[in-house]
Design a binder for these strands. Sequence first.
RNA 1: GUGGCCGUAGCUCAGGUGGUUAGAGCGCCAGGUUGUGGCCCUGGAGGUCGGGGGUUCAAGUCCCCUCGGUCACCCCA
Length: 414
Amino acid sequence: MGTHDVLPPESDAWIGAVSAFAQRAARYGYGLVSTPLFEHVEVFQRVGEHTDVIRKEMYDFADKGGRHIALRPEGTAPVVRAYVQHRPTAPWKVWYVAPNFRYERPQRGRYRQHWQLGAEVLGVDDPAVDVEVIALAHGFYRDLGLKRVQLVVNSMGDPSSRPAYSDALRRHFLHEGAQFGDEFLERARANPLRILDSKRADWQDVIDHAPQLFDYLSDESREHFEAVQRGLDALGIEHEIAPRLVRGFDYYTRTTFEFVSDALDAAQNAVGGGGRYDRLAEEMGGPPTPGIGFGMGVERILIACESEGVPPVAALPGIEVFVVDDLGDASATVILQELRDSGVGADRAYGGRSVKAQLKAANRSGARFAVLLFREEAGRGAVVVRNLVTSEQLEVPREQIVAWVLEHREMAPS
RNA sequence: GUGGCCGUAGCUCAGGUGGUUAGAGCGCCAGGUUGUGGCCCUGGAGGUCGGGGGUUCAAGUCCCCUCGGUCACCCCA
């Protein structure tokens, strides 16, 4: 099916990555937005009829009411739809973590269902927000400890400058690429920008000699792009200008960017990307509203983290105490609840197994202490505490066990 | 959508040219202490050999179909 499950303990890395992003996004004033897993297909068709995502990767179907539904293939369109629908006051700064679906053959770093972390800002045209959004993504990669992630940026121009460039490109490709067959010519006619980012070796020569987008930028777009670059420079964020970076969606205007990792193998090396989409809200029936955002693939980020040897760590309590029960009454249950209520990670074995087997489980749990409940000590109102690291053992009054653990949990390295 | 490789115990894998009860390591469970883990020793559980069909006296081993996984192309997160 091209889907996959995420199980413990690997899922700890997911919690680590998602919470790191949530923390950073919150520091920038972004709130969480959650949109449905599916939308009317029209919502996604705004991303561009000539894109692969729409042409061949849409996971769509008819529901029982005959509606044409599509599972979300990307994160921006639903967020813009929600903006148009609810009209929150600008600037609207939101982040999300959500599954995306694309009907394509899976391979390493590419899945039919994959998760994206992302952020969007609507209602602001200021290049400062372009810089902020890029800095947010950049900072997140740094939080994770990724060092082999590079930023590439480009400007797609605005609606006033794009048509002239598009025409020039089309003329170039139709003239120089006649030998490449129908697919090339069709793309050249319909959307010549789509050819620019092709990785096909036999097309490269013609692409290399294509007209440059920079030569067609309007003054406004040029100034905007330069302001973005100045902002990145001021933050010390290294970036490379990639004149042929056009990205996979047709809605982009002006700033586009992509983060690539050389820790990932060749083709699937993008760990995040995004750009400005100043016309999208209007195309969805809302007021003219500039917007910018990005999406990052969680699975790819985790592959990159693994490759760089920096797996994200979840800030969650581990098991500190393991209760070994030789009484068979409710004592273990009560002590466990007291410990857990007090903020202590505590676990037990089930099924009335032998003390030996329970201690084996205690050892496996990683707990530093075992609390053993025996009839003899219980008779004088006490329990046995065993340090599983040092094998030291002592008796502690039953009613003092939680206090004892709270007092000793920070001590002794385990 | 196109192409390559692969599918044997929970995991990683052995199982020349088809031939009696399909194996190993790790993991799991139990015992070696009457109430005690990690090391060690002993034993045990666990497998429709992905599924279906076919060839054959006989198939995990050959053929076909199918499902699944994986990698690559296109392109992207």
